[in-house]
Design a binder for these strands. Sequence first.
DNA 1: TAGCAAGTGGGACGATCGTTCAGGTACTTT
DNA 2: AAAGTACCTGAACGATCGTCCCACTTGCTA
Lengths: 186, 186
Amino acid sequence: MKIQTDGRKIRGEKRRTEIIEATLRVIERDGVAGVTHRTVALEAGVPTTSTTYHFSSLDDLLVATLISCARDMATEVYWMIDRARSRGSRGAEEVAGLLAEALGPRRGRTMAEYELYLLAARKPELRPAARRWLDVLTSMVRHDDEVAFRVFLAGIDGLLIQGLIDDEPPSAEELRPVVDYLLKPA
Amino acid sequence: MKIQTDGRKIRGEKRRTEIIEATLRVIERDGVAGVTHRTVALEAGVPTTSTTYHFSSLDDLLVATLISCARDMATEVYWMIDRARSRGSRGAEEVAGLLAEALGPRRGRTMAEYELYLLAARKPELRPAARRWLDVLTSMVRHDDEVAFRVFLAGIDGLLIQGLIDDEPPSAEELRPVVDYLLKPA
DNA sequence: TAGCAAGTGGGACGATCGTTCAGGTACTTT
DNA sequence: AAAGTACCTGAACGATCGTCCCACTTGCTA
């Protein structure tokens, strides 16, 4: 049983991921509404039929893209926690920094992630992916106070989505006291 | 200066609101993606050209619908606070009840409201409407602790959006301790 | 080397879309 | 009563959409 030595499959898989990455860029730029076979193909620099070959439908393409996006999100959360631990901090600084970055330079990406949330609200198959970053946090962070932890998780989501409708993104310094409050011991 | 006695204008305005209400139903059912002139017209029981007559473009229709939705949302929040005050309660019970209702029977409506959030993230003109319920809360509720209040607002949003991707909606009883924590004095 | 499998891509089909237009109706004003 | 205004609506246009078909190249296998 060989493990991926077929050059055709390898290149196919590569193009498949390229299409997914192009789709994510389209979502960041124009939202899920802007995703069509043609816009994605143009963004990826491949013919239109290539997207239909690798994904049985446009819906499949969206699902695959948002699952991939969720995986990246979870990975980021993982490393953030790892970074905070290596500094021996409680994580407030790291969390505030991550929020500010999500609402500033990576604003498009954050919007894409919340489109995933909404799509998951309508498509149960997407829910595990949408919950993944929550699961990563839950499994990695020790939390004796269950209620306080749930407030923390909800607070992060609320700060992000409210930050998206602010006229200008909040800075890490502005977010810091709120994050401190969310992380403060009971 | 007469105040709306022209029968034509009155009926026109009535149809306009009927179209908006139909649009909201379409959003609740199929999301913003499902909104077309034809689906809305079918839902409202009017000819397709009627939606283009009253709204200069599909975008105008969406904006008008979501602004209307935001106004209703703000009104609900207003009455919730009023109800809580008349009972002399701190509001935890009312808030938990409202959240449970938003995630249960009124789930479609809640999803529509968060689509407004995301649309507002991309369209600055919609942001005042999207922030309206936050403004109502901010202006009506006395908050000496600014940080705690911001945590409360964020927590509400977070609980709602996370409740939308739960496999089954949380009950008021489950939400109660978290809401209590959000409202507890510093 | 013949045959199969995987990926590629140009072209096209029918469906649906947003929007326009012109003719018609109902109401108000002069 | 005539003119003007506001609303209504059937029909249609061009654009774009998802998807399919089929001929093709490329790489693997027997």
